[in-house]
Design a protein around this nucleic acid. Structure first.
Length: 968
RNA sequence: GGGCGAUUAGCUCAGUUGGCUAGAGCGCCACGCUUACAACGUGGAUGUCGGGGGUUCGAGUCCCUCAUCGCCCACCA
């Protein structure tokens, strides 16, 4: 289904684009042939619908943004490249004898008349009948049963039965099953126990009641006894096979090799005939005898009815049955035996395992390695043919031959006359599995089939072999076959060119975990096979976006968000930043989805009900007007305005974009008279050294995070820095300095170099807004930097990544600044607590040690602009006088004189609360420190830190108590 | 059935080698349109870190176990 999934989201990756191209070309071809069938029509309809709605929206938006779009060219170039690569690869594998033809059960969708792949199948539990039929034993001996009872949910498949199986050793199988159950019982939790116990009870009863019969049947099977298949009057053998589970049903199981995967395995082991009774459209074929041409449904009823007439129905029970359904047509799947092309994986899989085990390909997070190795370790051959009409058609021409002389003649003709010698075409001869000529004739099988694989498209050879009666194989290749070539086919392989030389192997593949096996493993295999080197060195598996119920977003559930809607509402940068912000290593992301009413902008939560594809319109619960959903089809529904599909989780990112834009606006407004110039480090103020220090740590942090795929860390670090440090402190402090003519030039240069680095760091996750700011910025201050200015690159997208010298990082300065931030916070808190009007100026004093005093003094001036407060005194022995409010912080006590406007009760309540908090913490610390084990065993620096913390807390408690006393 | 992951504030999520007095955004409460920003500013409230055991001086973090949820693979007379 990958082809179709990506089809709805063009541009998500190149494989998607390539697939889309192939689909459309095939649609065109089919239309030219003027073949009609229901499934194809429906699909084409959907494709055109999609093209109108989605592609046009994308192109329209790109055009609105002033982009020119050469979509057509991109598409066809990729298509051609991929088609060639696919043929070259298939040919290469064919020539190495790694491609072979065999039988496989496929999931057949009878309404679309195509096979569907496993990921297009969903299971649904339905209440259904479970029939127990009796098959007569031929010539029962005395003591032997007259019938064998089998059970089925699909009665019509009995027409294709070719055996009934019993277990070869029912006694020990039951014994073993009992042991397993007992083990499970011992380990089980409360809730599971009764169920297991019940099974055990049933089992012990079975062992007495049924075991003798099963042993008897086993012996009959060994003796080669046969049963009569009712209705068909065909003799079928009773066989022994471990697939028959003695503990289930009657212990006997009917074997239908052509219509059931497990039965198929049994059939292979026992060399049973395999009878396919189905036509592609779901009606029964000639093998079904008198039931021919009936639909499955009708045949099912008829079979039951006929068996009832023969008194061969033992019982019918109603049960919950899990049935596989086709996702596309919503009809039940019928397993069907079909000829398939396989890739032999033994050697190929090993190369891909080695690439990862040896570390040549690294997986991040590492936990995904296990699944990858386990899957490849099974080395199961890869069935690559699909019975669909879109995709890359298999480049093989085949012709069946009926006798040895024809075979020899044709092969030598191919080799001698057509010069097929494995250089650009190759021959395989597939001998029929049936050795007996009479039986072959009966079944209409050829002696052998000659397959010719041709490497190049439009090779004249294609025509020549067709003239010899060869017909091209109808099947197309699995989507993943071409996707596996993505890393090199998109670079022009098999043609050598500088791009391929330069870019292969690529550095990193970023993808979703559910296609590690389907896509990643196969890319490694094909890369190694075609290029003799791994396709990438790192594979980053990103988290998945889930909806608010924790379910994967998918079209079939209808619970996705629409990225274009998010862009329309919040902006492209908000989408990108938001995604980065959510991308953490372990956690999948839950994204609640809302519809936005196009009339009143009310937000309507998406529910399991209103997201369904049957819901075409929704009534807004605020304005009561209706709007259409993404599923709208009828003209009336589509005439309604469409509700955007959004998630409010992108608001954070939208607000951040806005903040950044406003801060930049401020910066540019104040750079109108900017003059580039050297910055003398000795002239820097504390806040300058602080912001440089922070900038250095932040750029290191961001670089490191991006290097290690920690996108959310990068986004968070930048968000916090830009908002809380750059905007809330540095920009605020610069305001004072801008109004001072003497200080202005230095302040401007510092602002310019800070903004410069910030924009560079933000660009990867907010490309559009930072680029816009960057280019405006260049008009005001094109030369900037610390300490010496340099010409800034004209375009941010190709600008240098910042690497600040680590000696700019000054922990002491950051500590010093933290003291200021604490003091400022304390003053603001008092203002707020006391409800002091914002315009009212207040005065305060600080009690603190000499070292703190020295740290704070250069910054005292900012209390005026940032808190409308003035520091009167800062000393070790400052004491509260008169009516005052105090706040204690780590290493200081801030005292605000409040005579005139104190709210005594508010202050007392606050102090009481603070006191409680401190007392609790102090008790905890005291307990810890009085524990001898802790003091003895913990590292000395930890103990010292705890002691210090306790002293600080006790000091704070003391001053709180003093304040409480003074307030009465 | 096998494997992987999750469970932290009302919601969505951070929490590096155990040192935590558990954080952020949204939402909530109070005050404020102060010349970058109301998509904003300042301050505030909010947690038995799913339950139970264990290891340790010390557990949100490590181990065991139970519960719930999700994903992948296999199976489904």
């Amino acid at each position: 289904m990958q082809g179709f999934e990506t089809l709805w989201m063009p541009g998500t990756d190149h494989a998607g684009i390539a697939t889309q191209a192939v689909v459309e070309r095939r649609v065109q071809e089919e239309e030219n042939k003027n073949r009609h069938d229901l499934g194809r029509e429906a699909l084409i309809d959907r494709i055109w619908q999609w093209k109108d709605q989605y592609e046009q929206r994308i192109i329209g938006q790109l055009k609105q943004m002033g982009c020119s779009c050469d979509w057509e060219r991109t598409r066809f170039t990729l298509d051609d490249v991929c088609a060639k690569a696919v043929r070259y690869t298939f040919f290469d594998l064919f020539r190495k004898n790694l491609i072979y033809r065999g039988k496989r059960l496929v999931n057949w969708d009878t309404s679309l008349q195509t096979a569907v792949s496993d990921d297009e199948v969903f299971n649904e539990t339905v209440r259904g009948s479970f029939w127990h039929f009796k098959y007569p034993v031929i010539d029962p001996q005395p003591g032997e049963p007259e019938h064998v009872v089998i059970a089925t949910t699909r009665p019509e498949t009995m027409l294709a039965d070719t055996a009934v199986a019993v277990h070869p050793d029912p006694e020990s199988a039951l014994e073993k099953y009992q042991q397993t159950l007992q083990q499970k019982l011992a380990l089980a939790g409360e809730s599971e126990r009764p169920g297991i116990q019940q099974k055990l009870d049933e089992l012990s009863e079975q062992r007495t009641s049924r075991l003798p019969l099963l042993i008897k049947l086993r012996d009959m099977a060994r003796a080669g006894r046969k049963l009569m298949l009712p209705l068909m009057d065909r003799e079928i053998p009773l066989i022994v096979d471990e697939w028959a589970k003695p503990e289930l049903g009657s212990g006997c199981v009917k074997i239908t090799p052509a219509h059931d995967a497990n039965d198929y395995e049994v059939g292979k082991r026992a060399e049973l005939p395999m009878i396919n009774i189905l036509n592609p459209d779901g009606t029964l074929n000639a093998e079904a005898g008198k039931y021919q041409d009936q639909t499955i449904e009708k045949a099912r009823k008829q079979v039951v009815q006929d068996l009832e007439a023969l008194e061969l129905v033992e019982s019918i029970e109603q049960r919950d049955i899990e049935l596989p359904f086709s996702d596309r047509s919503k009809t039940p799947i019928e397993p069907l035996l079909a000829d398939q092309w396989f890739v032999e994986m033994e050697r190929l899989a090993q190369t891909a395992m080695d690439a990862v085990s040896s570390g040549r390909v690294e997986m991040i997070p590492q936990r995904y390695v296990k699944g990858y190795l386990d899957w490849l370790g099974e080395k199961r051959d890869w069935p690559v043919s699909r019975q669909l009409w879109w995709g890359h058609q298999i480049p093989v021409w085949s012709k069946p031959v009926d006798d040895e002389s024809d075979l020899e003649r044709l092969v030598s003709e191919l080799k001698d006359d057509l010069k097929i010698n494995d250089t650009s075409a190759s021959i395989q001869v597939e001998h029929s599995e049936e050795a007996d000529p009479a039986r072959r004739a009966q079944l209409g099988l050829p002696l052998a089939t000659i397959h010719v694989c041709i490497q190049r498209e439009n090779d004249p050879l294609e025509k020549l072999v067709e003239d010899l009666g060869f017909v091209r194989v109808e099947d197309v290749l699995d989507t993943w076959f071409s996707s596996a070539l993505w890393t090199h086919s998109t670079l022009g392989w098999p043609d050598l060119n500088p791009d391929l030389e330069y870019f292969y192997p690529t550095s990193v593949l970023i993808t979703s975990r559910d296609i590690i096996t389907l896509w990643v493993a196969r890319m490694v295999i094909m890369g190694l096979n075609n290029m003799d080197d791994v396709p990438f060195h790192q594979v980053y598996i990103h988290p998945k976006i889930l909806d608010k119920f924790g379910e994967t977003m998918s079209k079939s559930k209808g619970n996705g968000i629409d990225p274009l809607d998010v862009i329309e509402k919040f902006g492209a940068d908000a989408l990108r930043f938001g995604m980065a912000h959510m991308t953490t290593e372990t956690q999948d992301v839950r994204l609640p989805v809302q519809y936005e009413c196009p009339h009143c902008e009310a937000s309507i939560e998406q529910t399991r009900q209103n997201r369904k594809s049957t819901v075409r319109r929704i009534k807004c619960n605020q304005c009561q007007k209706e709007f259409s959903t993404q599923w709208a089809e009828s003209p009336e529904d589509r005439a309604l305005p469409r509700g955007l599909i959004l998630s409010e989780r992108f608001e954070v990112a939208r607000n951040f974009s806005n903040k950044l834009w406003n801060a930049s606006r401020f910066a540019l407004m104040n750079l109108d008279d900017y003059a580039a110039g050297e910055i003398d480090p000795s002239e820097l103020k504390i806040e300058d050294r602080w912001i440089l220090s922070r900038l250095a740590s932040v750029s290191r942090g961001v670089t490191d995070a991006l290097d290690h795929f920690r996108y959310s860390d990068a986004a968070r670090v930048l968000y916090d820095f830009a908002w809380d440090e750059f905007c809330s402190f540095y920009v605020e402090m610069l305001k004072d300095r801008f109004s001072d003519a003497a200080a202005r030039p230095l302040a401007q240069r510092m602002l310019a170099c800070t903004l410069d680095v910030l924009l560079r760091l933000l660009h990867p996750i907010m490309p559009f807004i930072t680029e816009e700011i960057w280019q405006l910025f260049g008009q005001f201050a094109s030369r900037r930097g610390y300490p010496a200015p340099a010409d800034a690159e004209p375009v941010l997208i190709s600008a240098r990544w910042p690497a600040l010298p680590s000696d700019l990082q000054e922990p002491e300065i950051e500590n010093q600044f933290a003291l200021f931030q604490q003091a400022l916070g304390a003053v603001r808190e008092i203002r707020s607590r006391q409800n002091i009007a914002p315009r009212t100026e207040i005065a305060f004093r600080i009690r603190a040690a000499e070292s703190v005093k020295r740290s704070l003094e250069p910054l005292l001036t900012y209390f005026r602009s940032m808190a409308r407060a003035e520091c009167l005194q800062i000393d070790e022995d400052v004491a509260a006088t008169g009516v005052s409010a105090t706040v204690t912080r780590d290493e200081m006590e801030i005292i605000v004189d409040l005579s005139g406007h104190i709210d005594l009760d508010a202050e007392k309540a606050r102090l009481q609360k603070e006191k409680q908090r401190l007392e609790k913490n102090i008790a905890g610390k005291r307990g810890k420190l009085s524990n001898e084990n802790f003091v003895q065993n913990a590292p000395t620096d930890i103990v010292a830190r705890e002691r210090q913390a306790l002293a600080k807390l006790e000091d704070q408690l003391q001053s709180i108590n003093a304040s409480l006393d003074s307030l009465g």
